[in-house]
Write a protein that binds this DNA or RNA. Sequence first.
DNA 1: GTATTATTTCGGTAGGAACTGAAATAACTG
DNA 2: CAGTTATTTCAGTTCCTACCGAAATAATAC
Lengths: 193, 193
Amino acid sequence: MELTKAAQKFVLHWGEMGQAWGINRTMAQVHALLFVSPEALDAEDISRLLDVSRSNVSTSLRELITWGVVKRVHIIGDRRDRFEALKDVMETFRVIMAERKRREMDPTIALLEHCVAEAKDGGSPEDYTREQLEKMLEFVRMVTVWYSQIDRLSTPALQKLFRGGAKLATMFGRGTQDDAGPVTKDSAAYGSS
Amino acid sequence: MELTKAAQKFVLHWGEMGQAWGINRTMAQVHALLFVSPEALDAEDISRLLDVSRSNVSTSLRELITWGVVKRVHIIGDRRDRFEALKDVMETFRVIMAERKRREMDPTIALLEHCVAEAKDGGSPEDYTREQLEKMLEFVRMVTVWYSQIDRLSTPALQKLFRGGAKLATMFGRGTQDDAGPVTKDSAAYGSS
DNA sequence: GTATTATTTCGGTAGGAACTGAAATAACTG
DNA sequence: CAGTTATTTCAGTTCCTACCGAAATAATAC
């Protein structure tokens, strides 16, 4: 079994992308490999195709399974575990987002709430900090709510929503609200450096 | 000048979050600090408040300015550069997304297009890979288009859009499409491991 | 039961990103 | 102009993550 040129390039690129988003390279590569693979692969295959140690593959697979984007499958008459990725991109995206919300957003909200409460009885310089923290908290909460709604959408509905962004943009576009053109008030303030 | 307890906690947490999203810790900390700071700070202040070397601050600031979330400001009668973060959370979010789109999405699309083209004249096992790459390409394109529309929205409009997610979710919710309950077809297949 | 094969765990290591301090450069002052 | 202060660059170091290989464990077969 061999990797095609296209598959190789994709796997390598996906590894880099993963790294840019805080996901370890090998893990992203394993995921990419399983994603484009026509059939489930065993750990040995993966190890050979990606040229990484068997144990590294084991660790990566465990993590991917924890994330929920890879599952273990069995073939009758073969003891070896095989692995298969979620094949629906949108579903994969959804699962990853759910996990990141749980691991990062929720704790961030908790921390921000704590900080805001703590800064409640501060002096006037602390007031500004509290206001900023409150704004940040409001934002993270908003994204969280938004996400939890997204999470309940089916794949076709999600596609509609994404495409709907285009319509909403036309409706509420900045051009109609800001006559100065495509530059917003905030970014305009950053003209001179 | 001293950091309040709340500010300290926020800065540290933001550093961790940054790391989880592929942004170097110090850089995220510097950004967090400037975000909650009532007035612009000079590099020396930052170095002292975060207890990192002056040069590390210099590098982080340069990067943050490149990203477009921090700007250099000057105070009359003082030669030292001061630094200030974008204070609008939504605007910050928008700027970061624009940058990530440019740095990651666009190259990814280019690569996927290349891979799909290359896999065009492959055999039947390669067909499956090509299909998957095509699906991935379609997805990334969709996100990109969606994003570029989002980018044109003003902050209040963007808030509307986020909150609109809730409405759309109610309209297209999975519950009405999938009578089996909250578990989707794809994730249901992952019941046994 | 023992033998064989598959898988995971774990201690040690290598590689790389982040960080520092010193030196170079730039910006300003009188 | 020399002198002073601010800033950046860069070579070396430190530290941490990812990784490997060996050993332990688990699963299956006979």
